[in-house]
Amino acid sequence: MRLFLIPISTRRALIYARPLRKDIAKELSMLDRVTTKAAQQWAKWEEAESGWKKQLVTWGNKVQQRIPFEEWGLKSIPSLKSQQKVDKEHGSKKIDLLFPGNAVHVEKIPSLLHKIATERQEFHKSKMRWSLGTAPLTAPFALIPVIPNIPFFYLVYRGWSHWRALNGSRHLEYLVDKKLLNPISLSGLEQLYSKRTSSALDNTPINTPAAEMIEDIEQSEERVLLKMSDAKELANILDAPELALEAERAIVQVGEQLEAQKAQKKAQQSNSDEKKGS
């Protein structure tokens, strides 16, 4: 397993795990088989041109886009137990963590990852219990002919998703606490972030030394560092094709959140001005 730390904005980052070839189990677990089967069925429904299948897929894809990118990132990290099954040395050796050394202080990586690992654990735990506990209550929907019990499958999926994120967060916390991470600044990432930081921050030239660039990032207000086109470049640099979708999702979500915050501040300022004028 190899970890990637991808700064999305000057304040938020995506953590993502990519399995190495030797990490891939020869035999799929029951959960993996069920998940694969469900993915294949979903793919078939995506081919439908109309009807409830098409509507379901359209709705489902929108729902998945709303799932926080932090959850997707944690879900990419396997549980500690499952990783130890495919790699007997896991837990006794360090794991490589690739990151841009001109966008993140290497000394601050442990605290940053600890925050990412722990800040949503209780949320995922409570949501997992609620989703899986509520799913049986949707049994009456199964009586409807032709259409599958969509509420049941949705709640089970969300419960499973929170379970995966919870296990991933605990695994990440374990790696941080045991000091099993080996941070490696990748030159390809540094080159990308030099360009993007210079573009996002007005007074930061592209050739700014790494230490100064990090300081500029930390002292600036929150801004998105990456463009949508960078998602595929990140995937190429890190040799992780599946990372492109996760990076795109994170860029969109952070961008929308920052725009919403700006609109809220503007509205508050407008209300404040109106009160002063009255």
Rank of each mutant, 00 (worst) to 15 (best):
S9E: 02
S9D: 03
L14I: 00
I15M: 05
I15Q: 01
R18N: 10
P19H: 10
D23P: 06
E27M: 09
T36I: 15
K37V: 10
K44L: 10
E47T: 15
E49L: 12
S50F: 14
G51W: 05
W52V: 02
W59G: 10
G60H: 01
N61A: 15
Q65H: 09
P68Q: 07
I77Q: 07
P78F: 06
Q84M: 15
E89A: 03
G91Q: 00
K93D: 12
N102C: 04
E107G: 12
L113E: 03
I116H: 00
I116V: 00
K127S: 13
S131M: 13
T134H: 12
A135I: 03
A139V: 14
N149W: 07
Y154T: 14
G159E: 05
W160D: 11
H162Y: 13
W163Q: 14
H171Q: 00
V176A: 04
V176W: 04
N182C: 11
N182L: 15
I184G: 11
E190R: 12
Q191P: 07
Y193N: 02
S194C: 07
S194D: 08
R196M: 10
T197V: 15
A200K: 08
N207L: 04
I214G: 03
D216I: 06
L243V: 02
E256F: 07
A260I: 00
A260K: 06
Q264P: 05
Q269E: 15
N271Q: 14
N271E: 15
D273Q: 15
G277R: 14
